[in-house]
């Protein structure tokens, strides 16, 4: 239902949407029932000529039922909501599936810096790819993020992923996401962080593996420079069977 208004582009977006829909339907149903009863009773017991108003203490069983039965039914609904919420919370926040990649997200007034490993797959090496206000990720890969703040509280929010995580100065907060749908999406700060909070925006690009590889090769400082080891391996590798003679040594 919500995807009609905000695209769902992560593996857990549908689960969170499902939970929000469940809460909306259950709470909405009881809201409508309560309003109907309220206005129904107002109408039924409206002022009539010759009828004196009476005070009802609510101590009789027939009167108490108006409170106890809906109360029990609402509690049953609460059980459904709690079970759904705990399930989603456990899957999204309490579980850390194995990562294909890790990205470090540094928030500050009023910009996002994204640091991704280069071809070596490790952070804090010379081939790291650093981007400002632009995060490029691969469709179908599971990412761990390491969220930091350089100054004040921020909140990393990606509506299309249904992801929102506070960044707290002095803490490194780990979370995860798995992009499922290529496209360009908004990143925003969801915690008031100063005069530039409203313009602390960035873009998230979910790319196919091929597109993402091209992007990495374009940006990584050492991605296109073959290492001596790779060159030596290439020289020692015999041509594949059936390979065209013109494709190699020529």
């Amino acid at each position: 239902m919500l995807t009609r208004y905000v695209e769902a582009a992560s593996s857990y977006a549908q689960d969170i949407d499902g939970l929000i829909t469940l809460i909306t339907v259950l709470v909405g149903f009881w809201f409508l029932v309560a309003q109907a009863v309220l206005f129904g009773l107002i109408f039924r017991f409206r002022a009539k000529q010759g009828v004196k108003a009476q005070y009802i203490s609510g101590e009789e069983k027939s009167q108490k039922r108006w409170v106890t039965i809906p109360h029990m039914l609402v509690l049953v609904c609460d059980v459904f909501i709690i079970v759904g919420a705990v399930r989603v919370w456990t899957d999204v926040k309490q579980t850390l599936p194995p990562a294909d990649h890790t990205v470090r997200i540094v928030s500050q007034q009023w910009a996002w810096t994204f640091i991704q490993p280069g071809p070596d797959g490790k952070l804090d090496t010379e081939d790291d790819i650093k981007t400002i206000d632009e995060l490029h990720v691969k469709e179908g890969a599971t990412y761990h993020f390491q969220l930091l703040s350089r100054d004040v509280l921020h909140s990393f929010s990606v509506p299309a992923f249904r992801l929102k995580q506070d960044a707290v100065p002095g803490r490194l907060i780990t979370g995860w996401f798995k992009p499922t749908r290529p496209g360009a999406y908004d990143i925003q700060c969801a915690e008031i962080c100063g005069i530039g909070h409203g313009i602390m925006a960035a873009r998230l690009f979910v790319e196919t593996p091929e597109e993402h590889q091209k992007w990495m090769e374009k940006l990584s400082p050492v991605a296109r420079a073959p290492t001596p080891q790779a060159e030596a391996e290439q020289e020692n590798t015999p041509p594949a069977e059936g390979a065209s003679a013109g494709a190699g040594a020529e």
């Binding site: 540094v106 500050q108 007034q109 009023w110 910009a111 810096t113 640091i115 650093k130 400002i132 350089r150 005069i195 530039g196 313009i199 602390m200």
Partner: peptide, 22 residues
Amino acid sequence: TGARGAHPDDIEGLRMRPMSMT
């Protein structure tokens, strides 16, 4: 344009950049 204030280690520049865009 990002000619200044778009380096990941330029903390003050990164703060000024979005403000300039206003």
